[in-house]
Amino acid sequence: MRHSAGMILLSVLILSGASLPRKGPVPVPKPAVPGEQATPTPEPKPGVPPKGAEINGKTAAQPGAEKKEEAPGDTTKDDSVEEIFLPVKEESAEEHATCLADLKALGGTFTDSKRIDDGKGCGIDKPIRVTAILPGVALKPEGTMRCATALALARWTKESATPAAATAFGPDTRITALNQASTYVCRLRNNATTGKISEHAHGNAVDIASFTLGDGRTIAIQPRDEDGTLTGAFQRAVTATGCLYFTTVLDPGSDAAHETHLHLDVIERKNGYRYCR
């Protein structure tokens, strides 16, 4: 009878939806022990702000986050930021003397000039004034620049531009002048009112507007990407070879500011990176 009564009670509980207690005793929360303290929250390391904290109006980054490194030769920096003007860079007297000797050996015509310091980062420590880049190849008008710039220009003219002209226009063709639009000038890039200082302001750059040939013809620099003539081929050839001598070459296809000349400069970049467009 006792067994039957127990079964009947169990059936009633199941039908009513009541839940049976778990097997074993129900765990009871452990009472606090007098004098025992809770586990303390870890304090942030000295000098490391907690994530999300504001410092000078900016949210702190997560501790341990690494700063992204700039790629060598990156040219996508924001040029709207004002340039931090540095003093005119002093040049090695020994390197300058070697450069002058190399330029003279190629037949360049030049004179030393006084140190230029126009303020705002503009200037050349050891400038030269160039009148002819090679024997029989004038620089018109004469221009002021660093020797390194003039030497690169002389080598490019002798080893690349002159052979390209002979191939394009006949074996007896000579280049008699490089017509420049700008050498040293104290200004920002692309003559902007804000942004970075131009390499022209350091004596590192020269803009070539045209070539004069021995027969009197002038080959002007202009957009020629779709020019199927030998003149177009000549311009594309000298532009491409320019990157062998200069670290920056900008032609009419690079942007609107260079539609009428080749910009050539010898700026030094990380790991010898060159920018040629």
Score class of each variant (00 low, 15 high):
residue 94 E to S: 07
residue 77 K to E: 08
residue 177 A to K: 03
residue 259 E to T: 10
residue 81 V to C: 07
residue 58 K to L: 07
residue 240 A to Q: 10
residue 75 T to W: 15
residue 13 L to C: 14
residue 215 D to E: 08
residue 54 E to T: 12
residue 225 D to M: 01
residue 245 Y to K: 06
residue 152 A to S: 11
residue 232 G to C: 00
residue 143 G to I: 01
residue 242 G to N: 02
residue 175 I to S: 06
residue 57 G to T: 02
residue 49 P to I: 00
residue 139 L to H: 03
residue 129 R to T: 14
residue 248 T to Q: 12
residue 257 A to V: 10
residue 83 E to W: 14
residue 264 L to K: 06
residue 143 G to Y: 03
residue 132 A to C: 02
residue 9 L to N: 14
residue 181 A to I: 11
residue 61 A to H: 05
residue 184 Y to S: 03
residue 202 H to P: 06
residue 107 G to C: 11
residue 90 E to S: 14
residue 61 A to T: 05
residue 17 G to Q: 00
residue 7 M to H: 13
residue 183 T to E: 04
residue 261 H to W: 09
residue 233 A to T: 14
residue 272 G to A: 11
residue 165 A to D: 10
residue 150 A to R: 00
residue 157 T to S: 05
residue 248 T to P: 01
residue 13 L to Q: 15
residue 134 L to V: 06
residue 197 I to C: 10
residue 173 T to S: 06
residue 111 T to I: 00
residue 76 T to Q: 03
residue 160 S to H: 09
residue 116 I to F: 00
residue 40 P to F: 13
residue 127 P to V: 02
residue 171 P to L: 03
residue 91 E to H: 12
residue 87 P to W: 14
residue 168 A to D: 02
residue 92 S to L: 03
residue 80 S to I: 06
residue 236 R to K: 11
residue 67 K to N: 07
residue 113 S to Y: 02
residue 160 S to W: 07
residue 162 T to Y: 09
residue 154 A to E: 00
residue 167 T to L: 13
residue 246 F to E: 07
residue 101 A to I: 12
residue 248 T to L: 10
residue 193 T to P: 06
residue 254 S to Y: 12
residue 94 E to T: 09
residue 38 A to V: 14
residue 202 H to E: 10
residue 111 T to Y: 02
residue 80 S to G: 00
residue 71 A to D: 01
residue 19 S to E: 15
residue 173 T to C: 02
residue 1 M to Y: 01
residue 109 T to R: 09
residue 32 A to Y: 10
residue 70 E to M: 12
residue 260 T to N: 13
residue 249 V to W: 04
residue 135 P to L: 09
residue 208 I to R: 01
residue 209 A to E: 14
residue 67 K to C: 07
residue 99 C to D: 07
residue 253 G to R: 14
residue 277 R to S: 13
residue 187 R to P: 02
residue 223 P to F: 02
residue 90 E to A: 14
residue 113 S to G: 12
residue 215 D to V: 05
residue 112 D to Y: 03
residue 9 L to T: 14
residue 118 D to P: 01
residue 15 L to K: 09
residue 266 V to F: 02
residue 195 G to P: 05
residue 192 A to P: 04
residue 5 A to D: 12
residue 175 I to Y: 07
residue 149 T to R: 11
residue 115 R to E: 05
